[in-house]
């Protein structure tokens, strides 16, 4: 599979290495899932349904160059403020995501604190011999898992990515990437990021950002912070 990755990358990169930067707009679709109906909390069910209704109003942007990318939510409005917020939360988006060839970080800036959260997304992709045309680009399928260990259990959420070797940058929505092409469509369990618009080789390309004054933490540290806030608010 690693050989296949290299062959695909070289085949397309040799012809299309002139793509130096770009800007992709993604739409969001949140589907219902098995387990929502059986949830105990009526507020959770109601708010998740509002997230489903309002997902279409969220617009995500991925800007990239050959070294790094930034993925963020464009400010907008939903049917109501609550629905827009619920869609944002349940999309899995935690804050602006910075990727380079080695690391992925989300800039968390809310009541939990302000941090650069080092994220682990899918590491081991399986490349599938399936293609589809997305926005005029030939894309290939890859499948993987997104593992969440939340203290209640360890969950292996299925991931399907459609990457396009014609855009030889290994980035994608919400910190996913490390494929031999840009991810134009990504599904994580019941959450789907689909491409709306592709702009390449912009006159004003994305410039890599540095967040030097922000502390970096990992997932286990942010989970401890959340547990601490939960305990404090209940005392």
């Amino acid at each position: 599979m690693n050989v296949l990755k290299i062959v695909i990358y070289l085949f397309f990169a040799s012809g299309f290495s002139q793509i130096k930067n770009g800007r992709i707009e993604y739409s969001l679709v949140i589907d219902s899932f098995e387990g929502l109906k059986n949830s105990k909390s009526t507020y959770y069910k109601s708010n998740y349904n509002k997230a489903i209704e309002n997902a279409k109003y969220l617009n995500f942007i991925l800007e990239f160059n050959n070294e790094s990318s930034a993925f963020y939510l464009e400010q907008g409005l939903g049917l109501d403020d609550g629905g827009y917020f619920y869609a944002k939360i349940h999309s899995g988006y935690m804050g602006k995501v910075f990727q380079n060839l080695d690391f992925t970080y989300a800039l968390v800036n809310n009541e939990i604190g302000k941090f650069l959260l080092k994220r682990e997304t899918t590491k081991d992709w399986e490349l599938i011999n399936e293609t589809k045309n997305i926005n005029g680009f030939l894309c290939y399928k890859a499948v993987g898992e997104f593992v969440i260990n939340n203290g209640v259990g360890v969950f292996h959420h299925p991931v399907i990515a459609w990457y396009c070797p014609k855009i030889p940058n290994s980035f994608g929505p919400n910190g996913f990437g490390k494929l031999p092409g840009l991810i134009l469509e990504l599904q994580v369990k019941n959450i789907l990021f689909g491409v709306r618009k592709v702009e390449l080789n912009l006159d004003k390309p994305y410039l890599s950002e540095k967040n030097e004054n922000v502390k970096t933490i990992d997932e286990s540290e942010i989970n401890k912070l959340i547990d601490k806030i939960d305990r404090t608010s209940k005392n």
């Binding site: 959770y44 349940h90 939340n150 939960d230």
Partner: peptide, 29 residues
């Protein structure tokens, strides 16, 4: 209500981050 919403989110495989805000939203509502 906050606790139940958090527990539901976690039981359905959400991260602690997502579950925390699901609980906070339930409390607010």
């Amino acid at each position: 209500e906050q606790k139940e919403a958090e527990q539901d989110a976690l039981a359905n495989g959400a991260s602690k981050f997502e579950a925390y805000f699901a609980g906070a939203a339930a409390w607010g509502d």
